[in-house]
């Protein structure tokens, strides 16, 4: 079983709103002193792959598309014991174009040889497009299933896939190859690498391809959509903190605000 996990490097989504600034000219977030981190759903995807390999065997390749510095997310994946790592070096500026990224990832996946399962995150925590997995499946001409929380072997050449829906879950049997977009679940909370493995990850090779080597033309990027406007919403509500001498008073004050709304329904 050859598994590719697509990992995107993003601006730390936990950057508090009060520290968040935008670059009005480039129409993207200012990096400032914030960290660049692997997207959380990509980490969930890697965790899903690691658990699959532990239980059933297989090979895991971590794949990213981004500037040279995006190598960092691959080192993290190697520290968690991904078998191999590959970087598509792309310095395309501006808002990520999910179609161009999907093409780049598809081209890299074809270079990697026969792949059975491609895992992506359900969406990236920066622009939150939630598109790359689906577009990648189309580029590879394979089926895809979204919001997947677990994959298990089924009959030969097929997987049992459990995914979340609005009201519960669904189980599918899917013929390989398959693209699955992974969502968060109590069982795929990312593990922490061992210090020794972090050190060793720096000695592991990373395969790198330029866009040209993958026959991709960077001028094709940003032909999907562009950011016309970007702004920070300024909406703050004045919170009235319920006061009172005693706890009972406070609870009564809070309860009366609640029941007032309940009565108005």
């Amino acid at each position: 079983m050859n598994i590719v996990v697509c990992i995107k490097q993003i601006l730390d989504p936990e950057l508090p709103a009060r520290d968040f600034r935008i670059d009005a000219v480039r129409k993207e977030a200012e990096r400032g002193s914030a960290n660049l981190v692997p997207n959380i759903f990509c980490e969930n995807a890697l965790e899903t792959a690691l658990q699959f390999r532990e239980a059933h065997g297989g090979k895991i390749t971590a794949l990213t598309c981004g500037p040279e510095a995006a190598e960092e997310v691959l080192r993290k994946a190697l520290a968690l014991k991904a078998d191999e790592a590959a970087l598509v070096v792309s310095d395309v500026p501006g808002v990520p174009d999910p179609m161009f990224v999907a093409r780049a990832l598809a081209a890299a996946i074809r270079k990697l040889g026969p792949v059975d399962l491609v895992l992506t995150g359900r969406e990236a925590g920066d622009w939150g497009a939630g598109q790359t997995g689906g577009l990648l499946a189309e580029e590879l001409a394979v089926p895809s299933i979204s919001f997947v929380e677990n994959v298990e072997p089924a009959s030969a050449g097929a997987l049992n896939v459990k995914r979340q829906t609005d009201s519960g879950w669904e189980a599918f049997e899917a013929t390989l190859p398959l693209v699955a977009t992974i969502t968060n679940h109590e069982k795929n909370v990312p593990r922490i690498p061992k210090t020794r493995d972090v050190m060793q990850s720096f000695r592991k090779p990373i395969t790198k391809w330029t866009l040209a080597e993958l026959d991709l033309d960077p001028s094709q990027a940003n032909s999907y959509y562009e950011v016309a406007e970007l702004s920070i919403p300024r909406k703050e509500t004045q919170c009235e903190f319920v006061a009172g001498e005693t706890l009972e008073d406070k609870v009564a004050g809070f309860a009366s605000r609640v029941t007032e709304i309940m009565r108005s329904l």
Partner: peptide, 20 residues
């Protein structure tokens, strides 16, 4: 067609111009 949506985890709002 222009679409308005939250980005950066709701810290910003973008208007995207869909080119195709």
């Amino acid at each position: 067609l222009r679409v308005t949506r939250g980005v950066y985890g709701g810290k910003a709002v973008a208007v995207l111009a869909l080119k195709r």
